[in-house]
Design a binder for these strands. Structure first.
Lengths: 224, 224
DNA sequence: GCGAGATTGTGAACGAGTTCACAAGTTGCG
DNA sequence: CGCAACTTGTGAACTCGTTCACAATCTCGC
């Protein structure tokens, strides 16, 4: 148990490995080598071994990794070995998609409560939950004890919601609003931005199109 | 992947700069220094200048950057200077959230068509579009000419949809399905995975909780 | 017009994360 | 048992992106 800092990319990949392992388990496969993981995940065998080495030794030389054993280990590492309750703020389009997202269950993630500030929405059903008043978030989380929160509100309200989540005891925030959140040192934020993703693709997609035409890749007008 | 002269993190940040600039423009600010950008974006001034330096010189020493001028330049770099049509595949929860996402317009991204394979859904209205048969995607895109596609279907159907998108002429894919897509060399894929993001947060959130019992916390900046 | 103050653009130093390469461990078979 | 075929775990080399530091450039006030 060497207490080295784990790179964030490593954590991101752990989730990918876990998905591949769950698929393999489903398919009845009992053992997997790093080589096979490379084929299924697109991540190099060396990278896979290195990533795991941050946490310990899980494989057997000459054999590979026990699928069910490694599933268990990664789940423990990612704290997915027991149910993680999540607070969702924002009962709009994105919130709606999230409560209906079927893949959470396999990772023991569960949206435990939904909040909004729109008094028309408060009290209405949302998935199999009921929309609660954002003003009651601290009170509600005193019972739930969630450490994770999701912000799915318009940008102008995001910072205020973040403050409320932190106050309610949340230490990890998944932010769908296009804003930089300011949070205390001990709180972690990850942003999901469709626009950002599409912008990067937009750059490449058209770049590719220009390359195909044998044109210069910079500055010129694209011929119609 | 093709040769990447510009680092991908740089492209991701360009989208952030653009957002800050649009806000500043809205607020009537006409000039911005890299220092001020740092305060608004959380990205270091040096990083900001370095990022821009990949594409040319946009600022004036002693003054800073013209807000409207830089907006225009970044839009051109990201190919957001004229409307980008997008094909959306999957008229489920996520697709629904996407067509209702209000922030696309500011970036001139427009979902131009929605496809599904469920014959019950085909022909029904979806936002201000009508759901079309996935079988007709190539035919439809012959008119639209979209280079970007979004996959918002269950994992088991994602690869098939990717193949269809590529065949229809798409060169950039935003993938919401938890699967590794295999695509030709010239096609770029970006994956959006709620589970992955939450898994990373889960690790940190509980880690923090454990650290509270005696250990110092370590500040982490998350990419945006 | 000129010096003071501000800010950019960028080569160079640095560092985090990836890839490499190989010793050490495991299995199976003759 | 001993050798051949595999596979892991990991220090070391390397790559790529970030940070630093400073010359060059620009504006403003006097």
């Amino acid at each position: 148990m060497t207490e080295t800092r784990v790179p964030i990319p490593t954590l991101e990949r752990l989730a990918i490995y876990l998905r591949v392992l769950l698929d393999a388990h489903e398919a009845g496969i009992q053992t997997l080598s790093s080589q096979e993981m490379e084929q299924h995940s697109g991540i190099s065998a060396a990278q896979f071994r290195k990533d795991l080495s941050y946490f310990g030794e899980f494989g057997k030389p000459g054999v590979g990794y026990s699928v069910s054993g490694l599933i268990h280990c990664i789940e423990r590492i990612l704290r997915l070995d027991e149910e993680q309750p999540i607070l969702l703020v924002g009962a709009g389009n994105i919130g709606s998609a999230l409560v209906g997202y079927p893949n959470f269950r396999a990772h023991r993630l569960r949206i435990a409560a939904v909040f909004d500030n729109n008094f028309v929405k408060i009290g209405r059903p949302f998935g199999d939950l009921m929309i609660e008043d954002i003003a009651r978030i601290k009170e509600v989380n005193a019972e739930i004890g969630a450490r994770l929160g999701i912000i799915a509100v318009p940008a102008h309200a995001a910072q205020e919601v973040a403050d409320l989540l932190v106050e309610a005891g949340v230490t990890g925030i998944l932010n769908f609003a296009p804003t930089i959140l300011r949070v205390p040192e001990h709180v972690h934020v990850r942003n999901v931005s469709f626009l950002q993703e599409l912008a990067v693709l937009s750059y490449h997609a058209v770049e590719e199109a220009l390359c195909v035409n044998g044109q210069a890749t910079r500055g010129g007008k694209d011929g119609v």
